[in-house]
Design a protein around this nucleic acid. Structure first.
Lengths: 221, 221
DNA sequence: CAGTTACCGTACCGTACGTTACGGTTCGGT
DNA sequence: ACCGAACCGTAACGTACGGTACGGTAACTG
């Protein structure tokens, strides 16, 4: 009765991973119109097996989202950068990677299905995407920000506040426009430019020895 | 064959508006699980009438979204503020209104259904929401920004760039978290604080006679 | 080799829901 | 008073899809 994918560990056979990859592809192509039959056909497996492994359709969707999430656990940002140059580079690389993932077909498809299922009674895909999206980003970036503060390069009281501002400067309206189906030209060079701009603006707001940062700081909280 | 709602004008009888209000309420409560039967029952009308007026389910959804959009055409921002105080106030009020709408149940429900239907072959709800959401905001705010620039209070080359940065500073991760089902406490006082912070940070980046603005400007585009 | 397990392929069942059809009622126009 | 249009309520139809059952096959185990 308990499907194997219920366990928090990723105990998936290679075959199961193949099936989930097929489901992922179908999710990207067909969105929420994905059916159990189509997954079975694409993965060359029987529906009975799908139900045995994943319980029901929701379980399959959940396992698919978790499977993708487990694949994108990015490399942690290095904290060795104590000078302004490496901190800037770290932030820029971070923003660049982030925008690249965010604008990918898989990310858009996953966020779409999670949004449409949010608020449902059953397993909450929104929480999973939230956990492996924005929250994971925060967990990875906030230590870097604090290292920058300890090194005297950044000035802020609330690390989460600073992160969320960085989020806003990087993402802006890109994600919501992609989710709403706006055709969006995001070349690699554009993304790098966006990352550079966001990082510069972030330093303008939170850089140490900056009268603007002092002003902003006095009104925080 | 052509439903009445196909015309770009809002030629809706009072009865039709009542029906769409019922559909709107159902959309907020049940999300995409809204059924034709439930709308007919809630609005005390027959399904035959729904099909005659709106063509099919997609037509009903489209008309509902457009109906809500036609209701929120906000008051245009006054452009008479040429001094820094009224410009700041205008931006703050704008940001505050925006966050309030964005975090409302209706907005979340509409964005949810639009996101889940985006990329569909038929009528594109995503385009409608995009047009009446972010794009409408841009059309309303960009003139104000340009008035501020002409008055020597703001400095930027690309108005749309400036607007998108303001967007990022105001919205940050609020909308995506709401869409993904994150429980979010947004009291009125919190929203006002956010609006004030975003406006201050925007002035820090784009305010005239600000060395930061000059720096940022030199790297734009 | 017999038995068990795991799986594929397919056929099948039940139901929910979009869509249509129809009888009955109200109401404005003549 | 009569007619027709518009509309309500409900029943009925068709289908798509989630979920289940079952026969067949290959591999593994004793």
């Amino acid at each position: 009765m308990q499907p194997a994918s219920e366990t928090s560990d990723n105990v998936l056979t290679e075959r199961q991973r193949d099936v989930l990859d097929a489901a992922l592809g179908l999710l990207v192509e067909a969105g929420d119109a994905l059916t159990m039959t189509s997954v079975a056909r694409r993965a060359s497996c029987s529906k009975e097996t799908l139900y045995k492994w994943f319980g029901d359709r929701d379980g399959l969707l959940t396992a698919t989202v978790q499977w993708q999430a487990s694949k994108v656990r990015g490399v942690p940002v290095k904290r060795d950068g104590l000078d302004i140059v490496s901190l800037t580079g770290g932030l820029e690389r971070f923003a660049s990677d982030w925008l690249r993932v965010l604008s990918g077909k898989i990310s858009v498809a996953l966020n779409r299905v999670a949004v449409s299922h949010a608020g449902s009674d059953k397993r909450d895909l929104g929480a999973i995407v939230l956990e492996n999206g924005p929250f994971a980003m925060a967990r990875r970036l906030m230590p870097l920000l604090e290292v920058g503060r300890e090194a005297g390069l950044l000035t802020f009281d609330d690390t989460e506040e600073a992160f969320r501002t960085f989020f806003g400067l990087v993402v802006r309206d890109v994600q919501i426009r992609l989710l709403l189906g706006d055709r969006f030209e995001l070349t690699d060079v554009t993304i790098d430019g966006e990352a550079r701009r966001a990082t510069q603006q972030f330093f303008a707001l939170y850089g140490a020895h900056n009268h603007v940062a002092e002003r902003g700081r006095s009104t925080q909280r």
